Computed example of a mutant assay.
Amino acid sequence: MEKIAVLFPGQGSQHIGMGKELADQRDDVKKIFELADKALDESFSELIFSGEEEELKLTANTQPALLTVSAAIWQALKNEGISASYAAGHSLGEYSAHVAAGTLSFTEAVQVVRKRGEYMEEAVPSGQGTMAAVLGLEREALEEVTRQATEEAGIVEAANFNCPGQIVISGSAPGVEKAMELAKKAGARRTMQLQVSGPFHSSLMKPAAEKMNPVLTPMEIGEAEMEVIGNVTAQPVAKENVVSLLEQQITSPVLWEDTINYLLEQGVDTFIEAGPGKVLSGLVKKVSRRAVTLPVYDKETLDKAVAVLKEGK
């Protein structure tokens, strides 16, 4: 193995019970959940382990919950002697990447993403904005679709460039609906509305980005132990740009396909996904079938990843 990157998932990967098995069996994992409870001043781990799905799905809960689980899993991997050269996270997962790299402290990050979730929920009244996945359409064709739909029905923009042939759009409900219709006419294989509470990664999130500025600005930025690749640029994030890029990220598209291509160009051949599920591992495989992907979300997958990584050393 040449180089390892660790990836962290974003909203949509959450589920009740995530991380519980590891927390029950490992003190290092349990400690991260206890830190989250203390930082948020509530029994937050109870919500994650045995709460109501609807409550966990609230953006203000989903974001700190995913950060907590991802940070706990990475801590377990680190304590097993695993390290990486690069970290990247999808949307919210970028905060997990900064925690893993040491640029942000876990306690500060979990408090910040709670605010991020609240502000993103408040930015657009429920039902007025949405997101949809468009499959089988190239970027240029989709750009024309979103331009036309915005003119005819309301704001809609590209939000996530996930992998070849999978782009997520975001914007006003009428704009997204129109874009889905136009995308099919333009040759899209399929369009699918997503179950989300708002038009994330679009210009409609500007009120959230503005509110986040005074929350992000005072954050203490540490020296990175590994390079963090940003969503906005798909390039390494310099220490002095951490805050501005996390603010821009709220209204900018997630350049995930570009991020994976950048990591492949740097010689990365192994991707650990630290967090619930294996969505990002699937996206990596769509960019490069040759890449080794190791999703880690419970004891079995942790043991398997550690065995594979130690064997490759």
Rank of each mutant, 00 (worst) to 15 (best):
G117N: 11
L302F: 11
I16W: 07
M131N: 10
V99Q: 05
G187L: 00
G127T: 13
L92N: 08
K313P: 02
K304F: 08
S172G: 08
E210L: 03
A65G: 09
E118M: 07
T62P: 12
L35H: 12
E225D: 06
A186N: 07
E247S: 10
G10S: 09
Q248A: 08
A234W: 03
N162F: 00
A60G: 05
D41A: 15
E151H: 12
K239Q: 15
P207T: 05
K115C: 09
I169L: 01
A88G: 12
T251G: 10
E46T: 15
N213P: 00
T62Q: 08
A224S: 15
S244N: 11
G19E: 09
L302D: 05
V287N: 05
V215N: 09
P236L: 08
Q195I: 01
Y86N: 11
S96V: 04
M212G: 12
N162W: 01
Y86E: 07
I260E: 01
K178Y: 02
F8W: 02
E223Q: 15
S50N: 15
E140M: 02
L92F: 04
E80D: 10
L280S: 11
M131L: 01
N213K: 14
E53Y: 10
V287K: 03
T107C: 00
L302Y: 11
R290F: 02
A274N: 13
L302P: 14
G282T: 05
S85D: 15
A224F: 09
V242Y: 01
G12A: 10
E46G: 07
K304C: 01
G267L: 06
L194W: 03
P174W: 01
N61Y: 08
K31N: 08
R139V: 05
